[in-house]
Design a protein around this nucleic acid. Structure first.
Lengths: 221, 221
DNA sequence: GATTGTGGGATTGTCAACAAGCCTCACCCT
DNA sequence: AGGGTGAGGCTTGTTGACAATCCCACAATC
């Protein structure tokens, strides 16, 4: 049999992966509050599975650093203190800086335009004062940047960092606001990539992260 | 009660964490060959536990990217192809570059001297032609560099990358050799950090990674 | 009255058995 | 001969029950 299209192998997701993903979302949006204990009995009942698969899923999140395990006591949602928030942005700088350089060196016009498109979307959100769409497209921009680097490892590491970033934003509720200037910073990062200026790209990403961090910690105090 | 020393909370490791660590080592040194399937029954017998805790440990390694899960088929040790090896070094450049900048900015003389000490150790290994000690202290240098950045997230992400790096080295057995020039490159990275030259530091780390990559892929072909 | 034992209740940790799915290979039909 | 097919065996997936541990409240003691 000769066919034109390639078939991807059927990567059916394991139950643990499925539950882990749902737990991750719940943590991300604060449905599972930071510091709170995860009751195996309760959660397994909610998901309609027994404790076995649930525990497997939770081990994934422990490895990811989203849960903290205390033996014979239970699993707790990680609480992010000021040091953690700083560290998240340090790590994001590292990952996103490297990703940007990869995009830059690949000279991928399509990637550039996709990133611009997301920025335009965020621009519309700003004009409409749609705070939810704003933060969504903010994170989306960073996700696309890393995805376009075509590096599976950068991508995977960044995924967790974005979850933690969202955790911060959720924890601070609407005590902080995303200024319109962020969009401009995104555009300037794209410009730097397009110009092929590596040092400038790195500097702008680092500055962007520093700004975000200042915004978050200023509110927290 | 007032005491002078602070007590760290007792972080007793969970069984899953313990088994995961042992599995990680087994993978690292090729005792579990890349591509091979992990039999739950066999492994649980070896570790003297039932399949429950073992499965939890394996989920951690799946999340870490060291194992590949195929539903209803089993778990397999990830095989690293050429793309993976390239990606490992891309990710390591990102992490170690960022770590080096943190050390640089902290202006931590103690960190510098610890890194130099590890290099001296590697130098001795080179002189003694001790190949095992050479690769050990090679990886040790990079580990210390990241540890000294004081960033838990960089540290955690780097840990997995070093396991994968060791996997590569193990897979290629002694078909490749670690040239003495590597030590010199390490020293030059430290020098750049000490001088406080960020651009130079990044360039030297990236070059060092590129060299290592070339060494590995040249052998593989 | 503060501190130290002690029991109840609840939660996690572990296990062994059961259910479900995949691979192999012999068998049969065309 | 070649390919479908189905039974058997083995592996993973899931479950419910049991054991171990911890927390909390209460009582006993100095």
């Amino acid at each position: 049999m000769v066919i034109g299209t390639r078939f991807e192998p059927v990567h059916q997701e394991s139950t643990a992966a499925l539950i882990a993903r749902q737990l991750r979302e719940a943590i991300m949006f604060g449905h599972l509050a930071p510091g709170s204990q995860l009751s195996e009995a309760e959660l397994s009942a909610q998901f309609g599975v027994s404790r076995g698969p649930l525990r497997e899923a939770m081990q994934r999140l422990v490895q990811e650093g989203l849960l903290r395990s205390e033996k014979n006591r239970g699993l707790f949602v990680k609480v992010l203190d000021a040091d953690d928030i700083r560290d998240i942005y340090v790590a994001r700088s590292a990952i996103e800086g490297a990703a940007a350089l990869l995009v830059l060196r690949a000279d991928d016009a399509e990637a550039i335009s996709e990133m611009r498109a997301v920025c335009e979307e965020m621009n519309r959100a700003v004009k409409r004062r749609d705070k939810v769409l704003m933060s969504d497209s903010d994170l989306h921009f960073h996700e696309i940047l890393v995805r376009r680097s075509e590096s599976p490892r950068l991508r995977r590491m960044h995924e967790t960092l974005l979850v933690e970033t969202r955790m911060c934003m959720t924890a601070l509720e609407d005590k902080y606001r995303l200024p319109a200037a962020v969009v401009k910073e995104h555009f300037r990062i794209i410009d730097a990539i397009e110009q092929g200026d590596e040092a400038l790209t790195l500097r702008r990403i680092e500055d962007h992260m520093q700004d975000a961090l200042t915004r978050l910690t200023a509110v927290g105090s």
